[in-house]
Design a protein around this nucleic acid. Sequence first.
RNA 1: GGAGAGGUGGCUGAGUGGUCGAAAGCGCCGGUUUGCUAAAUCGGUGACCGGUUCACGCUGGUCCGCAGGUUCGAAUCCUGUCCUCUCCGCCA
Length: 428
Amino acid sequence: MLDKKFVLENDVSVQQNCDRRGVKVDVPRFVQQETACRGLQQEIEDLARQANVVSKSIGKAADESQREQRKAEGRQLREQKDAKQAELDKLAAEAGAIHRSMPNMTHPKSPIGDEADSVEIHKGITDVRSFQFPVLDHVDLAQQHDLVDFEGGARIAGNGFYFLKNEAVMLELALQQYALHMLIDEGFTPTITPDLARSEVLQGVGYIPRGPETQIYSIENFDLNLVATAEITLGGLYAGQFIEEDDLPIKLCGISHCYRTEAGAAGRASRGLYRVHQFTKVEMFAFTRPDQSDAMHKSICDLECRLFDGLELPYRVLDIATGDLGGPAYRKFDLESWMPGRGKSGEYGEVTSASNCTDFQARRLNIRYKTKGEKGTRYVHTLNGTAIAISRAILAILENYQQADGSILIPKVLQPWVGKDRIGSVES
RNA sequence: GGAGAGGUGGCUGAGUGGUCGAAAGCGCCGGUUUGCUAAAUCGGUGACCGGUUCACGCUGGUCCGCAGGUUCGAAUCCUGUCCUCUCCGCCA
């Protein structure tokens, strides 16, 4: 959520920001309603004050009849107040709906425009390989080496589910180990989070459970939902808390399964492991002071790059354009890995992303820190970034590491955990 | 699944109808003392939304899990609801 006062004082730039992000918001209407609310609030407070004065005077009343008279007076004042309050509630609900639909403000450097306007700001150190043989996509490779059972997954849970098998299982665990070790070295506290969370938590982080277009699976008869990312649980962990300024920044990483309905995504590059209903992800999350968040954003993005540099996978980093940012993000960097089997002759596909949400989530989650110098409290900034989304990482590894002889090499950094250097035997 | 207890300020925890935005302790901030630190001691210290002021500040309202109700008046009484804890049972 944006600060209401900020919106009132910056209505023009807020409107411009909404327009650039492609979100329909009637800022002038909000300003008008919010202003009216404040007027009403004044009237209500005045009535409340008068009623309080009357109540306090009752003890000092001279006799019974005066007492009764003041009781009646107090009753009347509170009735007037209640009527005004009802009026205000109605108006505030409308203003609140507009308020909640406002996306976060945007970093001045974010490119303006839609998906196509995102700007490449970095390339990985590993070059895109040129293959001297017909390239297979990961689905064919997986089938050839018995690594993923899509049919089995579909039979027991439906399309979009799968069994990982054999070396794919080892790859999944190896990727978790690899990511976790690097993150721990960088000062992240490792966690394994719940895979379910209350609706309240999802909403705080910015997800909408149980809507018509929801991406979230909900549990029947319980106020619980399967998380779409550990961002939900890690962000929710500090909801309603006060953090000591000296404890900032707090850096957490969490392993969770991620569940997504992918409603409306049918047919959209949905083959194989790219878009699935369940996968494992190692997520980074940070709480910082406002002045620390830009640097933290960069450092989270750098870590994502290092993880992919280490895997020796080619990738590029995009500074995401305004129209493609999503609600809470102030700025977002996506990391796209080269996927040789995608499209006709290979395409980049999103593998991780890093967002700086400034105080947008913190305001809704009510996460503050106590300032040392000045009096009072301030909202923290929150940031999140994917360390490794396992299913897409496996996809990228299989396709990039395939060999002319049909085998698939294991990235060097993963070999200790996989226990071998190659999937499939070398035919000679 | 059965039985109990409880949700109060940054934390612990008093408080059963007006004198309570709330004791006390901890923590935090400032002063004094000590060679530094620690200790001691004195003082200050809740949040949110407004009004007013160049500013220090002054001032109104709201807030004791949440939502309703009773009352002139609710942290306190009533109803509902959510959550947490303890014990027993079951279970990986």
